[in-house]
Each structure stands twice: as C-alpha cells, then as structure tokens.
Write a protein that binds this DNA or RNA. Structure first.
Lengths: 208, 208
DNA sequence: GTTAGCATGTAAGGAGTTACATGATTTT
DNA sequence: AAAATCATGTAACTCCTTACATGCTAAC
C-alpha cells in the first residue's frame, strides 16, 4: 500500500523522502502520517526493483578517495519514477479485485489516484467498496438487534455510533457512484467532448 | 490490546477460544474479527504470565501412557481469569494516558469496559479522546483550506468525508462527556444512592 | 560558530495476518 | 460412517512503529 502510494505521488512529480512523507499524509486520510522507519526502506526496495530512480547529488565517485566508510550518505535524495515504475503503477491502479476496496486504507489510496484510473475501473472499485461496507453495516445491525439487551450503555453507544458511520459511508459511496454514472452517460451522449475530469457541481453538503 | 480485551471478556465469564473470538468482534468495533493465529498465541502468553488459567479437560496425566507425542492437544479448553489477571486488568482499565485514547482500537476497548471503570477515569479518557480527534479534525481542516484548489474532485471528496466523520465523532464524544458529567452531578446531590450504571435516557439521536 | 530544524537512514520489535495442519462433535 | 462444522494450534510472513544514530543547512 505504501509502495503504491509512493509510485502514485512520484507519478505527479519527483520528490525527496521528507516531502513525500507530507504528501503521503494527505493521501492516507490526512490524519496519521507514515514514519521514516517505513518510508526509507520502502524507497530502497522500490529503487532496487527498478521502479524509481534517485537523482543522488553526491555519488561516491565524486568524493575524495580518503572518504571514510560512509555509514550513511547524506544530502537530499530526489526520487523519480521510471518507465517500469509507471507500468507497475498502471497495473496497480487498474486492479478491481477485493484488494482494491476491502481494506479501508488501500481503498483510500485507489480513490486518491482516481484521476489516473479509467472510468469503468473507478465504478467497479466504488461498487466493490460499497458492497464491503454494506456487509459491515448489516453485520453490525444484526449484532445490535440480537444483543441489544445484554449490552451496557457504553457498548451500545459505541455500536450505534459505528453503525451511523458505516451508514453514512454507504450513502457517500452511493453519491459518488451516481455521479460517476452521470458522467458516463454524459460522455455517451456527446462522445466528441473530452470526459469531464472535474465534477459539474458536488451535490452540496450543507455543514461547515 | 488483544490481551486487554481478552482479560476484559474473561472478567465477565470463563470462555473458550472460539467463543472469545465472537465476543471479541463485538468489542473491537463489530466489523472485523481477530484471527485464530493471533488469538491462541495470545491466550498462551496470558496463561504463561499467570493472568488466566485453563480448565483443561484432558490433562496429560489422565491419558494412557502409550498416548503418542500429542502434536496438538484437542478438546475445548475453557479459560478463566486469575486473581493476578484481575489485578492486571484493573491496572489497564484505569490508565488515563495517551495509550488509552490515541489509538482508535484501544479507545474502543476501554469504552467497551467502562462498566468496570471509575467515573473520573471514564471522564478523563473521553476527554483525552476528544482532544485527539479534535486535533485530527483541525489538521484536516487546515490541509483542506490550504490545498483545496490543487486537489482533484476525488481527493477532495475523500477529505470532506473524512472531515465530516471526524466532526461527528467529536460531537458524539461531547454528548458522552456531558452525560457523564450529569451523572456525576446527580451522584453529588444524592450521594446515598448508588451511582447510575445505566443512563436515564440517552440524549436522543433522531436518525436510524 | 552554535543551535534548530531539515533530511536520511538502521535495528529491533509489536501486532497482527494467511496458510496450513489436525482433532472433536454434530448432523444427515 | 461420511460430511459439515466446531475447535485448537503452529510457522512464516506483512507491514508498520519506536528508538536510535548521524549528517547537512540556515538562522541567530
């Protein structure tokens, strides 16, 4: 998931690790960020696999011969995606199986890169996610109905709040799906126009 | 976290692993359950630590001497919490530091066992959780305000939905906190009565 | 020229998962 | 007695975190 997100970000522009971390926070839900202990090893793995390349500013060959063992090379290291990396990203982005939507984090990453995703793939991922969340909702409703009496006030509140959240997520997904379908229908009617990448008007939301 | 949840459930009644797993699902948010690959090793660790004890139905000593190496002992194994385990659970339950509310899962477990938690500890945990979630909300609002134009429709939707969820969680926590404070005030007025373990009437919620 | 904060990296470990293997009990 | 399902367990692995170690660069 992390490697997927890195490839996606580097697709947009080259970056060094520190920068990447900030952008990653936005992609991964905006709340928690990834730690360096995950980030740098991931970059190394991607580089070894040939999916990204570093524009290393101080290559060994330019250092004086007496430079000591160099436990760690320092200085900003800018990474860029390679052709192979783009290929791999295209593969990942077009996955429509459970791995694209069963896990909340992975789904978020897929959504964040929807601009690089074909319209039919977008729709399948959104529908898959909705099915997953609907199943969660149904299980929760079931469990609430069956055990309502046995539960104390706090557990009850926790489950009701969880149910409410899941319910809202289903509605949110339904809005996205409907809006995707509208776009598809519109593209059908006037196929000469470029399909709209920006939505016409988001359905509203009232709050704030 | 898993071990905390197990101790909490065994506090209520002895159970075997399979049963435990179902109850665990409810405690851990009702959606995903824990796998056996986590559960059984956890039980073993707790037993080795002396916090739980198994009522093993087929102890080695009762088997015929020719019983072969016994790669795996089978038959239901019922676990019960020990006095030491109760002590440990009481310790865990009364923790009011970040470990009780920074992680969503851990907070959920704490909440699920609020009936075993002192009123002042409950309040501190709820307030801590609210602070954590408020910080998340503020960070998200900030990020949304600053980068609104750069984001495509999908990332924007994702962040707006995330913000909405976090906002609702803050409100939910505030309701719980207010209700706790009411209870505390009521207990103050008539200290001879036992403090109410069940809420009088949940503040309402309208939806469903 | 020293402190603060930017930037990179490693080692150890935590908390879970999947895949596998097997036994015990209930249903048909 | 075969099949389904209940129940226990291990090994290997995934994916991330914390704690640590270090160097580079700008500001005072």
């Amino acid at each position: 998931m992390l490697e997927f997100a890195i490839l996606g970000l580097l697709q947009q522009s080259p970056m060094h690790g520190y920068e990447l971390r900030k952008e990653l926070a936005a992609v991964l839900g905006g709340l928690r960020s990834i730690s360096y202990g995950s980030l740098y090893p991931a970059l190394k793995r991607l580089q070894v696999a040939g999916l990204i390349a570093s524009d290393d500013p101080t290559p060994r060959s330019l250092l004086p011969a007496d430079a000591p063992a160099l436990t760690g090379r320092r200085g900003k290291v800018v990474y860029a995606i390679t052709a192979e990396g783009k290929e791999r990203f295209a593969d990942l982005v077009s996955q429509t199986g459970p791995e694209a939507y069963d896990d909340e984090g992975r789904f978020g990453v897929h959504l964040a890169f929807f601009r690089h995703t074909a319209a039919d793939v977008r729709l399948r991922i959104l529908e898959g996610r909705r099915r997953t969340v609907e199943r969660q909702r149904d299980r929760l409703m079931d469990s609430l109905r069956r055990t309502q009496e046995k539960l104390d006030r706090y557990t009850l509140e926790l489950q009701r709040h969880g149910l409410d959240s899941v319910d809202r997520e289903v509605r949110w997904l339904t809005e996205l799906i409907d809006s995707e379908r509208d776009d598809a229908a519109r593209a059908e009617q006037s196929p000469t126009q470029t399909p709209p990448a920006q939505s016409p008007t988001p359905p509203d939301d009232g709050t704030t």
